[in-house]
């Protein structure tokens, strides 16, 4: 990788302050408000090191969910939660009779690893559900919960079709990945993307990431990984049901259900209008019936 010319200027081994526009050096992206940023997570190069989980916890000062050892391969986090905003999933795949095959297709056919995160949907169901306006779309096209507005009603939690956002019973508010909103404002790329050693998590503008991802999928198909596909890019599984596309999208090699992802999530708020229409229509019918019955009762004698 060619070095960015600005790196020459910051050769000191101890830095007193963050580098200006550091994301240009670490991710090749100049972060500007008004553009659409997200993640492309290429699971074929994930090594399951969990640097992303640790970096996220460190930067956001999050406590560990004390769940001990789960016994589910190397996954000891379990799922995304109010305190876990990056979660690495592990799926070990064995062949016939539970014995792993000796020769396997390249790029992680025997052991799936995927770093799960908030998808930062284009039409986010959590934001549309939020009655206080705590959830909003930032100037970087990411979905963030304002901690000083949220009153913990918890309606965003069942709205999310991916099961991402959660309420913390301890501090009483909803939490999820902010795509390191504070780092973006300072010109730094998100902590998980910066710490990923294999560049499985790539940060950038969504349009660029999708192009890069499509080229990667074609490349993988040529190299024998026929099952590789994008999840969450426009017109792919995960970006269904009027959600638009997912700013944080993935390259997967097996069914979405294997990674605990829904193949066809939907935009929940599209159900509001049909439901209200049906309900109010029924109430109108009842009201007419009431008028008729009460009027008839009022006229007749006992």
């Amino acid at each position: 990788m060619k070095l960015h010319p600005r790196i020459q200027a910051h050769a000191a081994s101890i830095l007193e302050r963050p580098l200006p526009e550091e994301a240009e050096l670490t991710a090749g992206v100049r972060i500007e408000p008004g553009r659409s940023y997200g993640f492309f997570t290429d699971t074929t190069v994930c090594i399951g090191c969990k640097a992303c989980e640790v970096a996220c916890k460190e930067w956001n000062n999050l406590p560990a969910d004390e769940i001990g050892l789960t016994g589910d391969s190397y996954d000891n986090t379990g799922a995304l939660s109010a305190n876990t905003w990056r979660h690495v999933s592990f799926v070990e795949r064995s062949g016939e009779h539970g014995v792993r095959e000796n020769s396997q297709a390249p790029f992680q056919s025997g052991w799936l690893m995927m770093s799960d995160v908030c998808k930062h949907c284009h039409n986010p169901p959590c934001l549309e559900a939020c009655p206080t306006g705590a959830l909003f779309k930032s100037e970087f096209d990411t979905v963030v919960v304002q901690q000083d507005v949220c009153n913990g009603c918890g309606y965003c939690v069942p709205a999310c079709p991916f099961g991402v956002v959660d309420i913390s019973l301890l501090d009483g508010k909803a939490h999820k990945c902010t795509l390191c909103y504070d780092r973006l404002k300072g010109g730094l790329e998100p902590a998980c993307a910066k710490s990923c050693p294999t560049d499985s998590i790539q940060f950038g503008e969504v349009g660029d990431l999708v192009e890069r991802a499509r080229r990667r999928v074609d490349d993988l198909h040529r190299r024998g990984v026929e099952g590789a596909y994008l999840y969450g890019a426009p017109d792919t599984p995960g970006a269904t049901g009027d959600l638009g596309h997912l700013n944080a999208f993935f390259l997967l090699t097996d069914r979405p259900e294997v990674y605990n992802l829904p193949p066809a999530p939907t935009r929940a708020s599209n159900r509001v209008a049909p439901s209200l229409r049906a309900g109010l229509f029924a109430m109108a019918g009842f009201a007419l019936a009431a008028l008729a019955v009460l009027a008839a009762g009022g006229k007749s004698s006992t």
Binding site: D72, G154, V157, P158, G163, L169, E257, N260
Partner: peptide, 8 residues
């Protein structure tokens, strides 16, 4: 494991 979260 649950794929969704239940309402709190």
């Amino acid at each position: 494991r649950p794929q969704l979260k239940s309402a709190p």
